[in-house]
Amino acid sequence: MNERYSRQTLFPAIGEEGQKKIRKKHVLIIGAGALGSGNAEVMTRAGIGKLTIVDRDYVEESNLQRQQLYTEEDVFEKMPKAAVAEKRLRAINSETDIAAVITDATPDRLEELVQTVDLIIDSTDNFETRMAINDISQKYQIPWIYGACVGSYGMSLTIIPGMTPCLHCLLKKIPIQGMTCDTGGIIAPAVQMVIAHQTAEALKILVEDWDAIRTTFTSFDLWGNQYTNIKIAKAKDDGCLSCGEARTYPFLQNENLMKTTVLCGRDTVQVRPPAKQQLDLARLSEQMQASGYQIKGNPYLISVEMKPQRIVVFNDGRALIHGTKDLSQAKAIYNRLLG
């Protein structure tokens, strides 16, 4: 018995056989924020054969409250999250092959990244990427685990192509104007709770214990002492465009992606959601003010100070991010604000 994993192989549902399977598998984690850093650490400690972690951000001061692989020094050095994660994960387990990819997880990049992957753990902060992961999962028959949290609230769902409904079956369309960690805040215990569910499901998938898979949509509120499991089997939709009979993988198609353009001669990026939306600007403005942001506005737009950037949001969902020329940064800011 390898002493290192002895407490894990003692657990009968894993055992020596399960540990051998874990050692042969490749997990892809999209995002190295709160969920991503925690999921990556659990997977690495568990002895996964290969782990690829993808993130476009660098470590910021406000991350330290809940993102478990990072230290003050990483903030000071403005290090990319994926690079710091890789270094720490290697110090934790030199037996795991760790690959850090500093990139924006666009559908094109995702298609390249999943080629040898056995499982995708969602740790992103926006539904656009999640829906792309969901399509990719169906296209290449790779299980994925949805996880998300805000405030003290969170949720998790295991999606196994051919066995469970997919996220598109459940959500029908991308939810807009949801709460985000930048508007509703987030406490670390909610992050840990989602990680607990995602990594338990990950281990079940890696050891191929299909009977143990959670077939419910789990959501909880740790501060409100709520916990519920919703049965979802009947949500499976034969007409679903992501997993149904006439599937088109809509969220991999260019016309359904968010568009970003640097405005000519200006330090500004325009972000345009794939479909026109009808935002409730008054309510959005209220929410942002409650979150401590400085807001100016009129019935057609609101302007939000997020130093060093300033974001102008129009009621059709379009936005201008002033103070940057970086497309993926602009998209990140947009997602953080508007979910």
Partner: peptide, 10 residues
Amino acid sequence: IAFIPPVSGG
């Protein structure tokens, strides 16, 4: 009847 809002934070 339960109302469960999906969220996007992570």
